[in-house]
Design a protein around this nucleic acid. Structure first.
Lengths: 238, 238
DNA sequence: CGCGCTTTTGAGTGGCATCAACGTGGGTGG
DNA sequence: CCACCCACGTTGATGCCACTCAAAAGCGCG
């Protein structure tokens, strides 16, 4: 509350990776004047597809799901946002996808209009936004490669690899030499929505990988990668 | 050759839609000093995944395919570029995907390094690039929705709708009141690569749609949309 | 005309969806 | 504390759809 803006940003976990990383202290102060932190509870939705686009934000902590609901009511996930990813669509009048927190999350939130008014004077900021957007485009295309894979095993294995690449392993850095453990932010059903499979198929593939010693499932929302090489082999075949 | 740069741009078919649309005549002259037109024959590849990223370009005419070749040699298409779309990855050292012309094509080509050196002074240009990149991200996510669909019929129908939305109908504007005809830039096999299906399945779905009167296939590389409503229904079910 | 490439069509098989039943853990109210 | 519910996950049986293999037809080309 009474902390100065620059202090807030100095404490920010994604300070260097996010689009605001290139700004000076003075610029950060101006940006903070229009922004604020916001916590989201797991399951909370911050944007609905079709409504007016009023916000722009930085993900600081947690995982956000971007999804589309088709005419027949089925839900399809089109992207996941991790810490340091931008959330919201600049220059668009309408929100393209629902945005829902999969875990408890924290955002650095700006009114879109105010943010866009600020933009013209700050080429540094625009540059960083461009970089982040290009990176997100790459991510999205990598994800498309997953969906094109034919076997369910390859899809699930590939998904686990991509997810764990952006998640922090739990249990600290000391023990995790060769078998990192992650907390899955998605349920089996949500993984199924991502991959265009059914819950049952995802469940079967994961138990199969467990039986084969590729992964361990210490509890229902955790996964340990025991044999990354075999997982990569599974992901690239079929 | 002897035409002035601004004349070249004045003739450009994508002048208003592309990222260079916002530039002044003087700026265009500078941009043209480092750029040039380049024609591609159908099938020609201009960038290979993994090599150093040396170019940045604007698609002026034709359709460009972005694809990835997986370890086992199978090819997967991750995007199509149409006139006014940017080609090439700024700020990256390495090309992410193969880029191949599906039709005879024309590009407005820049050396990436020179283009990036120009960028800092031109916030207008950066702004436009950001807009185009955001639009491309939206396109890519829309495409992901296709791949998530479960039935082959829905995938093929959805693909045809997206493709024809960005293609110009052949045969002029006069006759095309209700049944526009398009030249397909992709073979059945390439459509199969896009959708994660097989050639046979794509072929079967298209003949089925022909029998049902949804489309006509006047020749092997053309398609006429006879009943767009039924096509949309096919695309959204399953 | 013969050759190669793409498309079409056919028959058989396997993988994933579907339907169904059961197990499990967390939350709620008695 | 226990009974109950509900969301989630697992496991099994069955059927359909898309892949696979195979062959033939259409088309461009030397």
């Amino acid at each position: 509350m009474s902390t100065s803006p620059s202090t807030v940003c100095a404490d920010c976990a994604v300070r260097d990776a996010a689009f605001c990383g290139a700004l000076s202290d003075d610029e950060l102060r101006q940006l903070n004047a229009i922004g604020r932190r916001r916590r989201l509870a797991r399951g909370e939705t911050i944007e609905w597809a079709g409504e007016e686009a009023v916000i722009f934000a930085n993900v600081i902590d947690g995982v956000i799901r971007l999804s589309s609901t088709s005419a027949d009511g089925r839900e399809q996930i089109v992207g996941l946002l991790y810490p340091a990813d931008p959330l919201g669509r600049l220059f668009a009048v309408e929100v393209a996808h629902d945005a829902t927190a999969l875990t408890d999350a924290e955002l650095c939130l700006f009114p879109r209009a105010a943010f866009e008014r600020l933009l013209p004077g700050w080429p540094q900021l625009e540059r960083q936004l461009l970089r982040r957007t290009l990176a997100e485009l790459d991510d999205t295309r990598r994800w498309m490669l997953l969906l094109g894979r034919k076997s369910a095993a390859a899809k699930v294995a590939g998904f686990l690899l991509q997810l764990t690449a952006r998640l922090q392993p739990v249990g600290g850095s000391g023990s995790g030499g060769s078998a990192p453990t992650y907390t899955l932010p998605l349920t089996r059903g949500q993984i199924a929505d991502v991959l265009g499979l059914t819950i049952e198929t995802v469940s079967r593939q994961m138990t199969r990988m467990r039986h084969e010693g590729v992964v361990a499932l210490p509890d229902i929302r955790s996964i340990t990668l025991l044999d990354r090489a075999r997982l990569e082999a599974l992901a690239s075949e079929g």
